[in-house]
């Protein structure tokens, strides 16, 4: 089955995870069961540290503090799923509650 990266973009909250409303947390935690029930599979999943911990390496080798671009939403986490097709991957993306940002579904090159 093809693999898709599901990238979660959200505005960062000052208190980090503690600021996430319980119903959002709950929906995130339950996504795994729904994904399994759809016949798809989570390959890997990662939540990211706040973007302030980012170090960006530019083309010339210069290392800067913070993310590459200033943006309102930053990647909060990502996971990789194996799904039947794009529509199923999009359905998985829809399971995730969006507070302020967006969820991006991106096909991966076949290994």
């Amino acid at each position: 089955m093809p693999q898709y990266a599901i990238l979660i973009y959200e505005k960062e909250t000052p208190g980090g995870v503690a600021d996430i409303p319980p119903e959002v947390m709950e929906a995130n935690l339950r996504a795994g069961e729904h994904i399994a029930a759809m016949g798809a599979k989570v390959v890997t999943e990662h939540a990211l540290q706040p973007s302030a911990t980012t170090r960006t390496i530019h083309k010339g080798g210069m290392v800067t503090d913070g993310p590459f671009i200033e943006s309102k939403e930053v990647i909060a986490g990502f996971f990789v799923v194996e799904a039947a097709d794009l529509d199923q991957a999009i359905a998985i993306g829809r399971l995730l509650p969006i507070m302020d940002g967006a969820v991006e579904v991106r096909p991966l090159l076949a290994p």
Partner: peptide
């Protein structure tokens, strides 16, 4: 082809 957009009727919800 790359994203595997299916040749299929959308699900009723969609």
């Amino acid at each position: 082809a790359a994203a595997r957009i299916p040749f299929r009727m959308p699900a009723p919800a969609d």
